[in-house]
Amino acid sequence: MKRMLISIMTLVFLTVSVAGLMGAEKGGNSRKGKYTFRKSCRECHMEGGKAQELSPANKTQAQWDAVFAADQYKSLACKAEWEKLSAGDINDIYAYMWDHAFDSPSPAKCK
């Protein structure tokens, strides 16, 4: 019974607080990130594009953390494109990738 109460309270608490955590943890705007990613990156990172086809579901959240934490993108061929983006834009893309990663609760759908 106690356990039940605790779990109910936890759930109530969670619906209020932690929910936001899932999407907003990275601070960026995931929706804007999707737009920026598609606008700036997709031309190459699409099927038949110059680079490997890429979607958030290509990597796990931990992998995306690594990519963005180490500024790995700076060593990529498209470094110049990245430098055109503001810190805010990059953060948005990070949020988008992370929110819809391979092992995220809402992985990006591939058809």
Partner: peptide, 20 residues
């Protein structure tokens, strides 16, 4: 590419009302 509207709210209306 679908446009992005800066003046939109950040999230769905029901965002966060269930945690998963």
């Amino acid at each position: 590419e679908a446009p992005f509207y800066d003046d939109n709210p950040e999230n769905r209306l029901d965002h966060g009302m269930a945690n998963m």
